[in-house]
Structures are given as structure tokens and as C-alpha cells.
Design a protein around this nucleic acid. Structure first.
Lengths: 327, 327
DNA sequence: TTGAAAGCGCTACCAA
DNA sequence: TTGGTAGCGCTTTCAA
């Protein structure tokens, strides 16, 4: 790798001058610039970002902390973030926390060590205290309003919509899966759901679930169908869980959606690939990622932020695990 | 952020000594070490990785280039890589190339600028020439043997297995989807498939497909069912495509697997969530990621590598879009 | 308009 | 066993 010194030498100028053309700063005469540019080309010189970062005390790197990229919700989020950051010349350093504090802390430290200019965290145990000493712009994603800067979608309303749509479509004995209690967004939507259900005239019951795992969800589904064989509507805590329930229901020969309606949450890509395709509450996942990146970039640039908490709207995606609404 | 200088001052020693305890190198007396460690704790000092990287001319960063993290094949790959790297204290800088040369080159440059110690590339246009001037350890993932170091699975054999299993299970008019021609691994498996099919006594036809997109695949499926209504076995180029075909088939009321058998490729997580669950050829995706990371780490450490090309075995996953094998 | 030089935080050599 | 110090590659004063 060529260095700035070599370029300077070849161009017959000082390193200061080379630096100036590199950064388009200060005065450089046209022909001097030309000489330098030629030398750069000749040597295939690429400025060393590390040296630059050391001096400037900031890099072009952004840290991204996710629970698990393997969970289909997160790749889309990550993609939104990346696409937005890339436009502005920032790059992603990324880690999966597995919801383990140790890993989370370890990654945060790594990010800091590497002079990241900002941080986006979508983990659930993202306790404020792990972050506040950082003196770095931080944006929390998919998490609630108690934090400084955050981007999330309207979980409560999403939960309400799910309940309303199911009622509107004629379910009368609804089963609600609560979702893991440590996953805040899941609890939000759950609250919204039971709020609406409580005000309605339908029967409903709540199943406490502890994970989003497909296999466990299948077991719960089995249990539900045994205990409440006449349940005619299920509100799942997310699309994976909904897939599992759908799977079990089909296996048991239930008619979907005539006998049983199922509604998911998230609208991950695969939900439309199921058969029947899954009706669900759509979070604008990709857009959430983009938005978070945008907020972070503004923060990095020290721009004014109109609102520190951005709540995006959710919507009902009417596919084939729900019936047509009654007029 | 505290610096080594401040630690040295507080501990009443020189920066050299602090550096020694930091790196466990050279001689440090027990009580001196203690003083230093206390100062470190007191100041919450974390060594600046950037400065270290500048001096050492290498970082703890590894670059990862993927086509698109949103494609369900890649998160698992990424996870395998990350888990393995993390054990050894390496971290991931990552980018999606979207199979665009410009983006690919841009990311490679960024990686180099940031002193990455190594590179893992899983892109399809990964032309050797874009990489060979890099003088960096590089491992190609999910790609063929023409490259220096690579980890991939046995695509040809996978293609063969798919054909054999379908024949064994009684399909007699098989349709093969060819998969995008620029995706080398897809072509490998296609070769394997037609090799076996050609030696057999079954009829078969090949459909040229140009993408892995679900929607396009649905359209092809429709076309297939129109043109070849008596096709009784489809070998898809991957699981997404297979999902689309399954979807269309179910929509048309075909009995799966009695009337039509479908076999996918990859065994991404969601394939088991489909109903009927998808029979497919399993690539050990996570393991491939791990293996690639392991090779890269060996390369970084300058260890001897027994084999530069690691080919992992694939296997048939017998689920519910294929029938039981005839005795 | 240019160059000399200090210094970002760290490591490693050499001398003490 | 310790400290002084040069230098990694760059940016940015300050002076010329």
C-alpha cells in the first residue's frame, strides 16, 4: 500500500499539499493538483482510513447491534440501515448479541475501540445504562419511547388493528399469544390487542409464550387446539409464531380461514410465501432501518432533529388466513 | 476517552510500561502491574484500537461481502462466520454488493482502507482479478474451485441427489429449473441434475430461469403447469423458487406430493415452515460460514492450511413435498 | 499557494 | 525491570 509520503515524493510536493488535494481543502494550484492526482493514480494510492481516523478521532464506521441476524426480521432492518448509511459514505460494523448482556457489552466496547461515529441498537435488553456513558450518537431501533433517540413502529395500534380485524371478520373465540415478556415491542402490541378485545363482546383467552421459536410455537398450537378446540381466531405474537400455528392447524386438517383465522405480526418476507399466505400486521421494517440511519446521520452531523422519537405506522395486510370482512 | 498517557501518569509509570501490561509482553513487576491495572480501572480506560491498528498495520477487523443479507441464505452464513470469528476476537465489517461491481469494488476498497486483516466474499461476480492485488488473506464462500481459498458445498452431487431422489420416488416427467446462469453454484447443481436425468429413463425438460425471485418463480410455475400439465416432479433451483412453485401448485389444487413432487435446494430455515414442508437438498450453510472463518483465521495467523478448497457434503432432507421411496 | 512540523494513541526498540 | 522515544499515515496549524 502506497502512503501519502510516497505520493508526495513522486509528485514533488509536500505531504501537506497531497493532503489538501485529497480533502479538497485549502489552496492548491491547478497544475500542482494535477501532478498530485497523477501520482495518486500511478501509485494506486488509497488514503489510510485508520490514520485519518486516529487523527480526527472519528471514523466512517457505524456500529450495529442486533439480537440475531438469523431471525428474518433483522436482515431487512439491517438492509435499510446499510442502504441509507452507504449513501453518506458510512459503513457498518456489526454484531449479534443473542440477547446476552456479555456479548452486547463486548460489542459495544469493540465499537468504541474502533472509533465508531455512532451506534444503532436493536437489542431488547438495550438498557440505557449500558449506553449512556458512551458520549456517542445512539439510535435505538424497534424499541420504546423511554430512550433518547429511537425509531419504532406503533405496536399498540398494531395490536389493536389485529384484534379489530379479527373481530370484524367474525371470530368469536379468540386466542391471543402474549409473546416473550422481555421483548418490549411484543408486549406493546399485546396490550393493544387486549385493550380492544376487552372492550368487545368476543370471548378471548391469553396464552403466555416465552419465545418466538417455531418449534415451541407448534407445541403451543397443539395445546391450544386441544384445550380450546372451538377457538376460531388466533392472534400470534409475530409471523414466525403464526407460521407455526398455521402449520399445526393445517396438519390437523382445519379449514383456514373458514374454521380458524390466523393473524401474524411483522410481515416478514416469507409470510407471503406461505399457503395460504399469512394475513398480518405489517411493520415497515426496511423503512424503520432507513429512518434509524437517517436520524443517526443527522446526529453525527450535529443537525437539528425535529423529533427524537419516530413512530412509524403499521397496517393490516389482508391475505388468506383471514376471511373477507363482513359488510 | 482516557488515553494510555493518562493511565501512565496516574499510575506513575511510563506509557511503555502501561503498554506492556496491556499486551502482556515483556517484563513487568507484580506491584507495578497492579498499579497500572488500578489506574486503568479508575479511568475506565479502553485501548484505542485505531492507534494500535495504525502502528501494527493490521486490525481485528474482517471484511464480509455478501450479495444481499435479505436473501435468507446469507444470514445463516453470516452467523456462522461471526460466531467463529468472535471466538478469536475478530469483528465483522460488512456490506451487500447487490451483485453490482461498483458496490463490490467500493466495499473492497473500504475494507482495505480500514486495515482489515482478511476478507470473506460470497458474491457471484467475485472475479479473482478484483481481489488478487489485495495482498490480504481472502476466502471465497459458496463458490467454485478455481479460486485460491474457498469453501463451498458439493453442488454437483447435490444436483445428482435431487434427481435420483425424485426418480426413486416415482416421478416420470420431471421439470428442472435451471437457475440464473451467473450464479455458479446453481449451475453446478444443474449440471449434476441433468447428468443423472440424462442417464435415466424418465422424461425431463429444462426451464431457463433468470432469478431466484419468488414472484418470477410463481410466473414460471404457472407457465410450467400450462405447458406441461402432466409434469409430476419439479427440481427447483433453490428453496425460494421451490416455495413459489409449491404455492402455485397448491393454488391450482394439485395434490402434493401425490400428483406432483417438488424438491428444493439449500434448506433455508423457512423451508420446514411451509405446509407441506419442503423436501430439499440441504447445504450446511451455517457450517460453511464457520469453515470459511476458520480457514481465514488460519490464513491470518499464517498457519499451514491442509487444503485450500473445502467442499462440504450435502444431503437430502426428506420432508413432505416428496413421496416415500419405492422399495 | 506551499511546506515544515506537531501530534492523534499506541507499540517496540534500545538504553539504562 | 523500566523509561525514552521514534514512528505508524494522516491532518492541520503556522510560517514562509
Amino acid at each position: 500500500m502506497a502512503t501519502i509520503k510516497q505520493v508526495a515524493k513522486l509528485a514533488g510536493v509536500s505531504v501537506a499539499t497531497v493532503s489538501r488535494v485529497l480533502n479538497d481543502s485549502g489552496y492548491v494550484q491547478a497544475d500542482t493538483r494535477k501532478k498530485v492526482e497523477e501520482a495518486i493514480k500511478q501509485l494506486d494510492f488509497i488514503p489510510n482510513e485508520v490514520a485519518r481516523s486516529l487523527f480526527k478521532k472519528e471514523s466512517r464506521l457505524v456500529g450495529l447491534l442486533l439480537p440475531d441476524i438469523t431471525n428474518p426480521f433483522f436482515p431487512e432492518l439491517a438492509r435499510g440501515i446499510e442502504d441509507e448509511l452507504q449513501k453518506e459514505g458510512y459503513y457498518l460494523l456489526f454484531g449479534n448479541s443473542d440477547e446476552k448482556l456479555e456479548k452486547e457489552l463486548n460489542y459495544i466496547q469493540t465499537f468504541v475501540k474502533n472509533n465508531v461515529v455512532g451506534l444503532i441498537s436493536a437489542t431488547n435488553l438495550a438498557d440505557k445504562s449500558n449506553y449512556e456513558h458512551l458520549s456517542l450518537p445512539i439510535v435505538f431501533l424497534d424499541r420504546g419511547p423511554e430512550c433518547e433517540y429511537s425509531v419504532f413502529s406503533d405496536g399498540k395500534e398494531g395490536g389493536r388493528i389485529a384484534a379489530r380485524e379479527l373481530i370484524k371478520r367474525g371470530s368469536e373465540k379468540i386466542t391471543v399469544l402474549k409473546g416473550p415478556s422481555h421483548v418490549l415491542p411484543a408486549q406493546e402490541r399485546f396490550q393493544g390487542t387486549i385493550e380492544v378485545l376487552g372492550q368487545s363482546n368476543v370471548d378471548f383467552q391469553v396464552i403466555s409464550t416465552t419465545s418466538f421459536s417455531f418449534l415451541e410455537a407448534k407445541a403451543w398450537a397443539k395445546e391450544i387446539f386441544e384445550k380450546y378446540p372451538d377457538t376460531d381466531g388466533i392472534i400470534a405474537s409475530n409471523d414466525i409464531t403464526a407460521s407455526a400455528i398455521l402449520h399445526e392447524a393445517l396438519q390437523q386438517g382445519k379449514a383456514i380461514p373458514d374454521e380458524l383465522q390466523i393473524i401474524g405480526y411483522d410481515d416478514i418476507q416469507q409470510s407471503s410465501l406461505l399457503f395460504p399466505s399469512l394475513s398480518t400486521i405489517r411493520q415497515p421494517i426496511y423503512e424503520m432501518g432507513k429512518e434509524a440511519a437517517r436520524v443517526l446521520i443527522s446526529l453525527i452531523k450535529g443537525e437539528m432533529i425535529e423529533q427524537s422519537q419516530i413512530k412509524l405506522a403499521v397496517s393490516f395486510v389482508d391475505r388468506n388466513t383471514t376471511r373477507k370482512a363482513k359488510e
